[in-house]
Amino acid sequence: MFKVFLQVVSKELKGAFRRQSDILNPVWFFIIVVTLFPLGIGTDPILLARIAPGVIWVAALLAALLSFERLFKDDFIDGSLEQLMLMPHPLAWLVSAKVFAHWLLTGLPILFISPLLAIFLSMETNTYFALFLTLLIGTPILSLLGAIGVALTVGLRKGGILLSLIMLPLSIPILIFSTLAIDAAAYGQSYLGLLALLGAMLVTSITLAPFAIAASLRVSVS
């Protein structure tokens, strides 16, 4: 069972590293958006620190949206999605592996880059720590929810706009709770409760989203 999971993940990573522009694109977009803010708004550290959590999270959300297209699209075009659906393993398990690989390629780089961007936006250490935690919990939720949207729109010719319409309302709660947690950290309050809420969302989406993704794929590939 785990062998199958690892095989799918390693195939995804291998493929992605052969086409580096595809994985670098969302991360690059994320960096550009965040670095442009201090240039556009000015270098007032108080103002920057105030808007930093929102900026980083909105940029992360848009970067994720940018990267979703290729989660199932390429596989749909070259037929490997059909082959994946004909594997003698539960489809929900196979797609979880794909989503996990997607998070490794998009969510994780954002986590690694975030310290640098926190300095650009003159965030304080404890605020940054809260940001890091919310990104750590929040980006996998984005990947899982986005995958449902992608699975629903994969058979459509121009699914991009529909995907963002499906995806954005679902991701707004994550955005709200994350920025609330970071704000609380900035004021020196405890933000554990908000993190726990995010954690609950993560657990719910890890357990339920794979089934939703599998069912959506069965509908849209038929």
Binding site: V4, K11, K14, R18, D78, G79, S80, E82, Q83
Partner: peptide, 22 residues
């Protein structure tokens, strides 16, 4: 099928290994 299910960015050997293992 019409669409072969072969990943263009992997080598022939890697493609077959994937199916063999799964």
């Amino acid at each position: 099928g019409h669409k072969t299910g072969i990943k263009p960015e992997l080598t022939a050997l890697e493609n077959l290994q994937f199916f063999q293992k799964l």
